[in-house]
């Protein structure tokens, strides 16, 4: 980073620390914070989409679809989420490869499962073994996002299902009285009104999502936990910057990062709640009206 860092063994004190904290690996460490934020930014809308689909399915008038929706929303109650985080990526990976295998190599006769191996034809591998390193990393990250979206989609489906039922029945009846079809009354009356009921549950979910991000480490993504372990471990003198076991301080840093993230989210969400309550016929809206007088 700095020109003075060319020979680390001559450095001392603060200079050493400045050079140490700007080494190439530390830059990768700082970038992995962006990975976490990217995961949050991609997963939140994806989970909302999954949740919306799940809630719609759970309300469906078609019996099998309703059962699928109910099962999807119910599964997260009894089963630890980490089981899903371990299960979904591998299952999805094998599912995709199996489908591609069926399409691309129809004359392949060997069974896909051979004892303890999962063998598909080379053309069906995901990503192809010839593809560059970044493709492998992106694919791993995409699987992780999918796992998060599936699990948090189930939580969001619970919240949205409850919010849809919380919209006063009279609103739907009015819509029907105006001659709207069920589809119209759903999209034009129910959906616009449900968000204020869903907001407390969704903001809770956001906090939980933040706290689930270190599980990326379990999925093999090089995230902040990976780098904290990697960088913090004791380095002997063959390394450029030898130091004893500093993992405690690295994890302390991560703890503070997460505490700050929660604190900021709390502040933003409480402002959002205040904004959405404005003019609503709820207790919070009424309190705002009184305060303004």
């Amino acid at each position: 980073m700095f020109a003075s860092c060319a020979d680390p063994s001559t450095l001392e004190g603060l200079n050493w620390l400045a050079c140490y904290l700007t080494s190439g690996k530390h830059m990768a460490f700082y970038q992995s914070f962006l990975v976490v934020l990217a995961l949050l930014a991609i997963t939140a809308p994806a989970a909302l989409l999954f949740g919306f689909g799940g809630a719609m399915a759970a309300r469906s008038r078609i019996w099998p679809l309703r059962m699928v929706g109910r099962a999807y929303t119910a599964m997260v109650r009894g089963i630890p989420d980490i089981v899903f985080f371990l299960f979904v990526p591998v299952a999805m990976d094998q599912g995709f490869e199996w489908l591609r295998h069926k399409v691309k190599c129809p004359d392949w006769t060997d069974p896909v499962r051979q004892g303890s191996d999962f063998v598909v034809c080379p053309a069906a591998k995901l990503p192809l073994s010839t593809s560059p390193q970044w493709a492998h990393e992106t694919y791993g990250f995409a699987l992780a996002v999918l796992a998060f979206a599936v699990v948090f989609g189930a939580f969001a489906a619970n919240v949205l299902y409850g919010a849809m039922r919380a919209v006063p029945r009279a609103q739907i009846e009015t819509a029907e009285a105006y001659g709207m079809t069920p589809r119209q009354s759903f999209w034009r009356v129910l959906v616009p009104q449900m968000w204020i009921y869903a907001l407390p549950g969704l903001s809770n979910l956001w906090m939980i999502l933040i706290k689930a991000t270190p599980l990326l480490f379990l999925l093999g993504v090089q995230d902040i936990v990976y780098w904290a372990r990697e960088l913090g471990g004791s380095k002997t003198s063959i390394f450029a910057y030898p130091h004893p076991d500093w993992r405690l301080y690295y994890f302390l840093g991560l703890l503070i990062f997460y505490l700050m993230l929660t604190r900021v989210s709390e502040a933003v969400l409480s402002r959002l709640t205040a904004r959405l309550s404005h003019g609503q016929a709820t207790l919070a809206g009424e309190a705002q009206r009184k305060a303004a007088q």
Binding site: P214, A228, D245, L248, F251, L254, L255, Y258
Partner: peptide, 21 residues
């Protein structure tokens, strides 16, 4: 605030490193 605001996963890592020290 500290225990509810941070991931349990990080708390486990941190505690383990602290105990090892």
């Amino acid at each position: 605030f500290v225990f509810r605001g941070s991931p349990l996963f990080i708390q486990f890592f941190l505690a383990y490193q602290a105990f090892v020290l």
